[in-house]
Design a binder for these strands. Structure first.
Lengths: 218, 218
DNA sequence: TTTTGTGAAACGCTTCACAGCT
DNA sequence: AGCTGTGAAGCGTTTCACAAAA
């Protein structure tokens, strides 16, 4: 429905949804933007603006109906259908992500790990995710209709692996390797750079200005 | 020197530094904002603005002297002195981070893992990081002058663990658990929310608008 | 001439303030 | 009365465009 929704709004929608799940579990029926705002230390108008991108989701004088808004947000975020995920790189990080509860989430299913080391291929992660040879990525991607690739390989091979993932027709990528990665314009790339995060903390320590509640970034 | 430097500028400084390291290794002596900008698909003026916060670091008509700028950025980011890091939570993620090369970086040293499960305490990670009981956090933090805590515990115990870390006098926190975490204003918190990242990708897939080169976020 | 450093303009996101609905 | 939805104001970041320096 909306023309353009900013990345920041998108990220907040996830947070709202998580909160609504908790509220529903607590038996809360409706919630106002004001109450929601307090939980995240955000401005209430911002929450209303975020939601208003997707139609009139609230009820004036009442607030938002928890169950309805939750359902609608799941739909907006594409969580009403399952998305299949593969992880590239069966190293420490790849394994950890494969078994990470936060990743074995509602709408997501981790289908496979990929690596190029022969002795790893054929094995499984602790939670049972099978490890394939990276050469088979194209086949698996089609057979299992993989939607998302998670890149957890060393920096040196990152771009090569990303190219293979793009080649396999996967249109969404979560990248954990450092350095600049290039993808075609029709592929969505989201990068998490742990070095940048650490160095940002180092910077703030060096200038002695703790500044609370760093904004969540996703 | 500067009054205020935005988080976004700070994050980019890390990227510039990484690039300068590569340039120096390649024997490049000077680099212009234009060349740097091309590597990151950024505007050259933005890079000059970022750097100009810290004095006149460039030479007009020439560009930036790679070795000098690298040195200066290391200083600005506080990487000229070692920072000791502890990881809270010796689960899959904690172990992976303890052994992750990107974390065993220049200025950082991972001193310890902490957990509350008796059978883990006393052991070591693959790379040799010792595991202590979380009760000993205060002591270790003081003895080893820990600067940064990395929180990799389940969501349910996140706030409790964060409180313990703050109590131990640690002023910088990298948090991997989902949900809203509160810290005092003098503590710097940076959160990486993997669920939000995944759901953001899901959102973009659902509306079918791949939009290349997602900005690196740290 | 090349490239930095920087005011001014442009842009985008957030907050304010209030009309309008329940 | 209470709360949403939203135009307008405010504010911070990015880009432009050019004077100043090498």
């Amino acid at each position: 429905m909306p023309e353009q929704v900013s990345e920041q709004t998108t990220n907040r929608l996830s947070l709202y949804l998580r909160c609504l799940n908790e509220l529903e579990a607590s038996g809360v029926r409706t919630v106002s933007s004001k109450v929601l705002a307090a939980k995240f230390e955000l401005n209430a108008a911002l929450i209303r603006k975020d939601l208003s991108h997707f139609g009139d989701l609230g009820v004036r004088g009442v607030g938002y109906v928890v169950r309805d808004l939750k359902q609608r947000l799941r739909q907006i975020l594409g969580l009403d259908q399952q998305l299949n995920v593969v992880i590239l790189g069966a190293g420490n990080l790849g394994f950890a992500l494969a078994d990470y509860p936060g990743f074995r989430q509602d709408g997501f299913r981790i289908v496979a790990l990929f690596d190029n080391l022969c002795d790893k291929v054929g094995g499984r992660s602790r939670s049972g995710v099978p490890i394939y040879d990276i050469c088979d990525l194209g086949t698996v991607a089609k057979d299992e209709s993989i939607a998302i690739g998670v890149v957890a390989v060393p920096a040196a091979s990152a771009q090569v692996v990303v190219n293979a993932v793009v080649e396999a027709g996967i249109k969404a990528l979560l990248n954990f390797s450092p350095g600049a990665i290039r993808v075609p314009p029709d592929v969505k790339l989201k990068s998490v750079d742990l070095t940048v995060s650490l160095e940002s903390l180092s910077f703030h320590l060096a200038r002695g200005d703790g500044s609370g509640s760093g904004k969540k970034v996703g």
